[in-house]
């Protein structure tokens, strides 16, 4: 009785396994991308870019990331599973700039080139980094926010993360630029919401309670920015200027109806596309440019529908 049940389970597992293999026939070059996540629209846009490049270049691309951006060890397990499949090259967006180094070394020993994307690692193993210059992008956000509040007043930052490169760079790029170029603007708080909508909402409301005279808030990624918009709306503080980062339906809607002043957009599709392109080149033994700047743009109500902006926004 039980053995029969057990066999059924095994058969189910096998048939599932069978389906999966037929889907990823191994004749073409195989390039896995290990990202920081897969549920957010930003990562889905990166994935879209990667898939596009994969189609154009005739390679198999897979895309995977942990459930949330704290799960450093889960990402390592994904990296290990990807390496087991003997890929031609690998794309990797590190959650922690150091933790993955042993696995990367393993890749290096196996002759598998690594392309870092979105954020780098503290190692020379990756042959290239395809990323936004987050420091410059966040500095632009600082300039815009300062301009929008008239060059003086209190502002706050709702950041998504305190450990990853992007989190640190966007925070520091914003803070440093503000200090240097806009001395009359005071940054009263830097809070971390993990990129979680709800947490960022609560943080924003708490900030507004603590600082009723707050003039502007910078949300450092999609989840944070949406959280800030929600928090400001819920607190009824409609005169607070919000500057966001990345896009996504909720954020573009907020910009269209004026709840958000504007946002920096990276080029996520470009990040995915350039990563796969560089990976294919590296796998073929071609020379690859070490730093691939995938670009960023400021967008607001006025230019949101312009073709060059619309092309890099995602819903």
């Amino acid at each position: 009785m039980f053995t029969r049940r057990n066999l059924l389970g095994a058969v189910a597992a096998l048939s599932l396994a069978g389906m999966a293999t037929s889907a990823s026939a191994q004749d073409a070059m195989y390039i896995p991308l290990i990202s920081k996540g897969f549920q957010h629209q930003f990562w889905q846009a990166v994935k879209a870019g990667a898939d596009k490049a994969g189609e154009e270049l005739g390679v198999n691309v897979s895309f995977e990331g942990p459930d949330n951006e704290t799960q450093v060890d889960k990402q390592l397990d994904m990296l290990a599973a990807a390496l087991a499949n003997k890929p031609a090259a690998i794309g990797f967006a590190a959650l922690d700039s150091q933790a993955a180094i042993p696995q990367l070394r393993q890749a290096q020993e196996a002759g598998i080139p690594v392309i870092a994307f979105d954020s780098g690692v503290d190692s020379d193993i990756p042959v290239a980094l395809a990323a936004t210059d987050n420091i410059a992008a966040a500095a632009m956000a600082a300039d815009k926010l300062a301009e929008l509040i008239g060059g003086a007043g209190k502002v706050a930052v709702v950041a998504h993360d305190q450990t990853s490169r992007t989190g640190v760079d966007r925070r520091d790029g914003f803070v440093n630029r503000m200090k240097e170029a806009h001395p009359d603007v005071e940054i009263v708080a830097i809070e971390y919401g993990g990129g979680d909508h709800l947490k960022s909402t609560e943080i924003t409301k708490a900030l507004l309670t603590a600082n009723p005279d707050l003039k502007g808030i910078f949300g450092t990624n999609e989840g944070s920015a949406i959280g800030v918009v929600n928090g400001v709306t819920e607190a009824g503080a409609s005169d607070v200027v919000i500057v966001g980062y990345d896009s996504g339906k909720a954020q573009t809607d907020a910009i269209r109806d004026g709840r958000m002043a504007g946002a920096i957009t990276q080029n996520p599709v470009g990040i995915g596309y350039e990563t796969v392109k560089a990976a294919v080149a590296a796998a073929r033994g071609e020379q690859v440019q070490a730093s691939i700047d995938t670009g960023f743009y400021w967008y607001d109500k006025s230019n949101i529908d312009a073709p060059e902006i619309a092309a890099v926004l995602y819903d």
Binding site: N68, T70, Q71, V72, D96, Q98, A99, Q162, G194
Partner: peptide, 16 residues
């Protein structure tokens, strides 16, 4: 084990 594996103590990790 986890900190040795990550060569770091990640304070935000652990939930779940």
């Amino acid at each position: 084990l986890i900190s040795s594996r990550l060569n770091s103590a990640q304070p935000a990790l652990g939930l779940g």
